[in-house]
């Protein structure tokens, strides 16, 4: 099943990556090539097979619900592209 340019555009929007119009066709070809190769998975009989999300055999542990970290805004903001008065500065979201 091939991906067309319109699908690439839609997926790029979902992934929040700006892709210029002239890149959509080549990308569609590339991604289709990869997906065509992936199609061979359909040869495998997986009826009744439990999906495997992890190779860890034990149950995920629960932690104590207590504060173990924090109180250091300067560290948290240390890598911010823009910050002011102890806050991240981000583009306006609500008009």
């Amino acid at each position: 099943m091939a991906i067309d340019a319109a699908t690439v555009k839609k997926v790029a929007r979902l992934a929040r990556i700006a892709e210029p119009e002239d890149k959509l066709e080549p990308l569609a070809r590339e991604l289709s090539g990869i997906l065509d190769w992936i199609e061979q998975l359909n040869e495998v009989d997986t009826d009744g097979v439990e999906p495997m999300t992890t190779s860890v055999h034990t149950h995920l542990p629960m932690r104590e619900d207590v504060v173990t970290d924090g109180g250091d805004p300067a560290k948290v903001l240390g890598n911010a592209p823009r910050s002011e008065k102890g806050f991240f500065v981000v583009p306006k979201v609500v008009e």
């Binding site: 929007r13 929040r16 990556i17 700006a18 592209p81 306006k92």
Partner: peptide
């Protein structure tokens, strides 16, 4: 996403900022 660390490329809107940063 260009908000808390790493590269940020400003755009006309939040969405555009995300998209340009990641592009």
């Amino acid at each position: 996403d260009g908000m808390r660390y790493g590269l940020r490329v400003e755009g006309g809107s939040l969405l555009e900022t995300y998209e340009r940063t990641r592009a």
